[in-house]
Design a protein around this nucleic acid. Sequence first.
DNA 1: TCCTTACTTGACCTTTTAGTCAAGTAAAAA
DNA 2: TTTTTACTTGACTAAAAGGTCAAGTAAGGA
Lengths: 185, 185
Amino acid sequence: MVNLEIFCYNHFMKKDTREALLDSAFNTFYKHGFQGANIATILNDVGINKGSMYHFFKSKKALGLAVIEERIERNLVNKYASIKSVKELFDVLCSAPKSLAYGCPLNKMSQEMIYIDTDFQKLLSTTYAKFETLVQMILEREKVEDSELKAKQIIATYEGALMIYHLNQSSDGFERVLRCLEQNI
Amino acid sequence: MVNLEIFCYNHFMKKDTREALLDSAFNTFYKHGFQGANIATILNDVGINKGSMYHFFKSKKALGLAVIEERIERNLVNKYASIKSVKELFDVLCSAPKSLAYGCPLNKMSQEMIYIDTDFQKLLSTTYAKFETLVQMILEREKVEDSELKAKQIIATYEGALMIYHLNQSSDGFERVLRCLEQNI
DNA sequence: TCCTTACTTGACCTTTTAGTCAAGTAAAAA
DNA sequence: TTTTTACTTGACTAAAAGGTCAAGTAAGGA
C-alpha cells in the first residue's frame, strides 16, 4: 500500500491541518473553556508547531470564533435540521447526555464569553437564533401553536436540565423533566 | 467626627479585608469567570497588596471556593429562604435579570469549573442541592404534587431562560416562558 | 511597658502564555 | 526546470500570571 502521507510535512494532507486544528480546538475549548484553554495543548494534540497554527488563524480569538462558526454551529445544524417530528425532537434532546460530555457547547461558550468580548457575543447570539429557528420549524411542521414561545421554552428547559444533569453527575430527573414538558406541547 | 479608620493600615477595620476581598472576588469571578479573572484586578479593586490576600487565602483556588460558600450560596439562601408562596417565587424568578447582570452566578461557575476541578465540582453540586431544596420547600408548603420534579423543572427552565435572555440582551420571552410554566404547576 | 499575634507591605521569583519571525520544505504553476 | 505559493519549523520574545517572603506596623493581652 502506497502511503501518500509520507510526502507531506506531517501526517496531514495540506489543508487538513486547519480542520484538525478546529477539531482539537473545539474539544479543548469545550472542556477547559476558551480562556482556560492553552494553545500549546491544542498544538501538541494536533502534532504541529506554533507558526503553523498562526498561518491559519491570526490569534487565539480568531480560532475561537472559527470554532463557533465551523464546529458549534455546524454540529447544531447537523443535529437538528434533519429532525422530522416533535417526538423525534424530544428523543434527541433526551439523548444529549450521551454525546455532550461537558454540557451544551453553545451554552457553555456563551456563559463564558458574552460579557468578555462583543465579537463572541454577536456570533454566539446569531448561532443561538439559528438553533431556536430550527426548533421552531419542527414545531410548526406539526402546527404547534405559539411556536416561538414553545421553542424558547423547550430550549430553556433543555439547557437548564442539562446543566443540572452535569452538576449532579446523574441522569435522574433529566429525562423526566423533558418528558413532562413534552406533555404540555 | 472621629474617624477610627485612620488607626488602621488601610481604610478597612482589620477583619473587613477578608470580606472586601470576597466581595470583589465574587464580582470579578462573576464577570470574567474564575480562570479568566486575575488576582491583580481584585487586589487593585480592594486596594491591598498580594501578601495581604495570601494571608487569608492560601491560593486563588481557595479564594474561589470561599466565594462559592460565602457569597454564591449565601446570596441564594438570602433570596429564596424567605419566599412564602409559589406566586412570590415566580415573581422573584422573573425579576432575576434586574439583579443578575451576568447570568446566574451558580450556573456560570458550574459550567466553567465542574470538569476542571473536583473540589469545585463537589461544592457547586452541594450548593445546587440546597437551591433545589429551597425551591422544593416552597412548593410543598402549597401541597404541590411531585415537588421534587417540579422544583427541578422550575430551576431548569429558569436557568435556561436566563441564559437566553443574556445571549439576546432582550427580556422578550424570558418572563413569558416562566409565566407559562407557572400555569402548569 | 513589653511581647505576642494578626495583618500588611512591596519587591521578587518562576512559570506559563500568546504571539513573532526568519529560515526551510514541498507541491504546483509557469 | 525554475519560480512561486502555501505551509511548516522551532527558537525566541515579552508580558502576564500566580505565588513567596522577609521585614515592618499596629492592636491587644500580660
